[in-house]
Design a protein around this nucleic acid. Structure first.
Lengths: 206, 206
DNA sequence: GGAATTTATGAGGATGACCTCACAAAAGTC
DNA sequence: GACTTTTGTGAGGTCATCCTCATAAATTCC
């Protein structure tokens, strides 16, 4: 039950060429979103960068927003997957190790997929909603991870902790994007320490 | 007339009526920005809400962006002022008290001036730059405040700590804006605790 | 009152964005 | 080769936004 498309003009790619087009359009869209932001990016430029005509773009994506949603959908999938892998890889970390890994995780992901941050933090009308859904999924995943490390906590507390950790990770990401290299790294370490302190206290039986 | 060059269609308000117009325009702009975001807000609606014509708006503000900058300038002034007051009011707080107060401070400010957050987090072209400048000023103020509590730290460390604390405060603000009331309050307390833990460790002589 | 200055007005220009549509090309299918 | 389906094209429609400008009202000054 994928998204219904009442408009018959929009097609799913069938031949290989179509899939390539879609991929190059998504890549171009990501690049444009990163460079100019979601709102300022234009469909004409996205099409031009993908080496396609504007009509070709609108054959596969009904709106500009559909491009953003397709991108975010892909990011969400890989994010969840990698977070699951991270959780499975070492279930016996302490708070410090977990803090380090979580920050590495999200900072690295953002570096590899800069459009993710742009769209997640965009203040545009509907992608914001999509971003909320993403945060929900992420939170659940993170909550499960935390639950494994602190089985003595109640669900409500775990949920709150997951939200907090997400915010701390987000802060780390924002921090990593700021100018001033040496100071940036120093601050990142500090923020990592803040997260570690928090996790340490959280995991302590009392 | 004075030797003003050709293109001076923009005027500063001179009579009382002008000042009132400017004030109501700024209020209307703030409301629109909050409701629709910076980009989606339109100058025509701002003018209509202020009970002014569109031409009247452009008599005092050359562009929509000028409205946002004027707003942000005002917010920045009051923010700095209040932060200074906070710093002066109780210079002998410990880390926990300071953490509590800082979060109260920024969450309260955001509640009183919702447009501040909207503009500060906006991804629009130039107001973002303005936001950067604001963050710099805020950081300096905060750094001075922290320096008073931890005189044994070097400037570089203080600077990094100020950036981190700002991010933590920002996270608290973002958290406070999320849905889910009971969980929200719980999480806010948790984030406050994270900040307190961090400050406690920071202020400890070693 | 009359002159000078400030404030008010709103129709319309200019711009640019998103998206459509009629049609052409390519690629599979027989 | 003929036929069907998928993909490609780009000029232009439509619409909304920002902003201008000529002109009029209000206010202050003398």
């Amino acid at each position: 039950m994928t998204s219904q498309k009442s408009n018959e003009r929009i097609r799913q790619p069938q031949r290989q060429r179509g899939h390539e087009r879609v991929a190059s359009l998504l890549n171009a869209a990501a690049a444009c979103f990163v460079e100019k932001g979601y709102e300022a990016a234009t469909t004409t430029e996205i099409a031009a960068r993908a080496g396609a005509s504007i009509g070709s773009l609108y054959q596969f994506f009904p709106t500009k927003e559909a491009l953003a949603q397709a991108l975010m959908g892909g990011y969400m999938e890989t994010l969840q997957l990698r977070l699951k892998k991270l959780a499975a890889s070492s279930p016996d970390w302490d708070g410090d190790q977990l803090g380090t890994q979580l920050i590495r995780f999200l900072v690295g992901f953002r570096r590899r997929h800069p459009a993710f941050a742009v769209l997640a933090e965009s203040t545009a009308p509907l992608p914001a909603i999509r971003g909320m859904a993403i945060r929900e999924h992420l939170r659940e995943e993170l909550q499960a991870l935390l639950a494994r490390h602190a089985p003595h906590l109640e669900p409500a507390d775990l949920r709150a902790a997951a939200v907090v950790v997400l915010q701390l990770m987000k802060a780390a990401v924002a921090l990593n994007a700021e100018p001033g290299l040496t100071g940036r790294r120093l601050a990142l370490n500090q923020l990592q320490q803040a997260l570690q302190l928090y996790l340490r206290a959280l995991f302590k039986p009392h």
